[in-house]
Amino acid sequence: MDFYFTREHEWIRIDGQVGIIGITAHAVEQLGDITFVELPLPGRKVKQAEVLCAIESVKAASDIYAPLSGKVIEVNELVENKPEIVNSSPEGEGWLVKVEIADPGEVKGLMNRDEYTLYLKGLS
C-alpha cells in the first residue's frame, strides 16, 4: 500500500482499485483544531483535483480536492461527530473518504512521500 500526496496537502493510500483519502499532518498543522468535516455522499463521482469535501477549523474553511478521479464508496462517519480525530491521526483514524479509483494512471501527477517531504521543505 503506497501513499501519494498532492500539492494541496491531501494524501491517498492506494490498495488495488481502492484509494483512501485524507489530509496530511502538515495540512492539520496549518489548519489548527478542526471543528467540522462535510463529507460527500457515497456514489458521487469526482474528477482528479475537483472539490471532494470541505473542512472547517477554528481558523478557516477549506476545500479538500480529490487526489485521483473515482467514485466515492465509503466515508468516515466517525469524523463527522469527532472531527478532532483528523487532528490527532490525520493519516490513520482521521481518514475522510474511500474511492474506487477510475484511472490508476493519474498517479503520475502525484508525489510520493520523499517528493512530498522535499516539497514541504521548499514551502518553509
Partner: peptide, 8 residues
C-alpha cells in the same frame, strides 16, 4: 495567538 492549540 495559540500555543498547544486553541481548543485545548
Amino acid at each position: 495567538i495559540q500555543y498547544d492549540g486553541i481548543l485545548a
